[in-house]
Design a binder for these strands. Sequence first.
DNA 1: CGCAACATTGAACGGTATCAAGTATGGTGG
DNA 2: CCACCATACTTGATACCGTTCAATGTTGCG
Lengths: 255, 255
Amino acid sequence: MFDTANRRSMPQYVPALVSKLARRLALSLSDQQALLAASSTPRHAVRGDCLIREDGETTSLVILCRGMARAVRSLTDGNQQIVALFVAGDMLNAGDLFFPRSRTSISALTSAISLSIPLEQLGRLITNRPAIARALWQETAAQAAIQQEWMVWLGRRTAKARLAHFFCEVSYRLHIDGHDARDGFDLPLTQQELADILGLSAVNVNRVLQVLRSQDLIELRSNRLIIRDKAGLYEIAEFDPRYLSGLEPPDTGAN
Amino acid sequence: MFDTANRRSMPQYVPALVSKLARRLALSLSDQQALLAASSTPRHAVRGDCLIREDGETTSLVILCRGMARAVRSLTDGNQQIVALFVAGDMLNAGDLFFPRSRTSISALTSAISLSIPLEQLGRLITNRPAIARALWQETAAQAAIQQEWMVWLGRRTAKARLAHFFCEVSYRLHIDGHDARDGFDLPLTQQELADILGLSAVNVNRVLQVLRSQDLIELRSNRLIIRDKAGLYEIAEFDPRYLSGLEPPDTGAN
DNA sequence: CGCAACATTGAACGGTATCAAGTATGGTGG
DNA sequence: CCACCATACTTGATACCGTTCAATGTTGCG
């Protein structure tokens, strides 16, 4: 689908994706090309667009090439819990492929570009290219590790520690992907959405944010976050980024 | 390692395991045998024994053949969060194989039997037998789905709903595995451990349990749970077992 | 039988939610 | 360019769910 020998011909979102597939998932050039070749036309979405519908049939693997997205579970009482945050390069539903229907609704947080790989073709790729199966498994495992960390903060941490930890995680994930987040980064989340990630109320998120600001730990306005005191924030969060090592280039692994 | 043609010669824990590998993960007889052949001598553990040490090096895949186990994350303030509960047939660290060190400590909740498959041999199996790689991936995905559900309750549900949902889940998982849980089942958890699963205090767990009992929804004494009013409990829990379909024999899947 | 772990109960406290109002902010159309 | 509107953010008051602390029962095991 793309002429990787001639980088000028590639759409702008491909480099980020290839970086992920190659560096993080250690796929060979041939495997990367096979994946891209099997994918359908890129989809452009704007904030709020639904990429995967809750209870919708699982028909393809979706890879986020640009932008951010979130997976939401809605409850009958109107509350929501955001169970995952995706950045460029993440696979939105690697683990969901074993389920006939999606258990979450996944929507774009920014304008976004995604690629879809129909299940039928993916099945062939998995059969013929073990490294691709392995990559999907690794992606599933990496996201499960993140979820475990979220469970810990949801179950046992104060509002302040949750907020701090979440900021550390996002910052670190972007750092892994090569974004230079030293001058801050875009965090396209409303306080209500932060609350839905952290299991808090929006009002309380607002108050705790003010505490973090008043202690010169962070700045956050108009969807841009700057971490002013990284060491301080790490300490409050008890942040240990080892749980994100599944996202980094492997130096050891399952085989 | 085992003569599957002659069932009399198999240790008692093998049938449950084979049922899982064959039914749930759809492994061929040959793949099952290869897995078992690669495994080390079964380990017998008693309640409290550590099966996988937090921050310990990842050296093998561990499969729980008998009993129950839990994965714990300990915090500096002494609090704990239990991030997973395992029943017979579950793989304890399928997703952790991508991490050089375990992020959780996994210990037995009952007397238990486990099999270990050294990474080196597992690597060979994965390479030569794609169905085994796929099975490990599926196991990772199934556990991730359960974790997502836990995240929802930890973030957005009341104590009563959490307890109810947890009971529904365990009951259902045992049901899938062929246990007849109609007369109740063993739930080898103290109230403190329930609290550490549900992100609550032990005192509150105690009080909410009494509410559930007083409404004739459950009975629970000396580590034995009986669900008296399944429909009522499901309703309180808003329990929808579809998220557990990854544990059931597949009628559709990734390929 | 006696000890240790577990379960239960009560009282007081506290973090977070909820409700309700008011204030910025950004985008849109006139 | 400004007025307007919708959305998001901020702030205060109050209520509640769940925690903490402390004491007392209870169970089961050696």
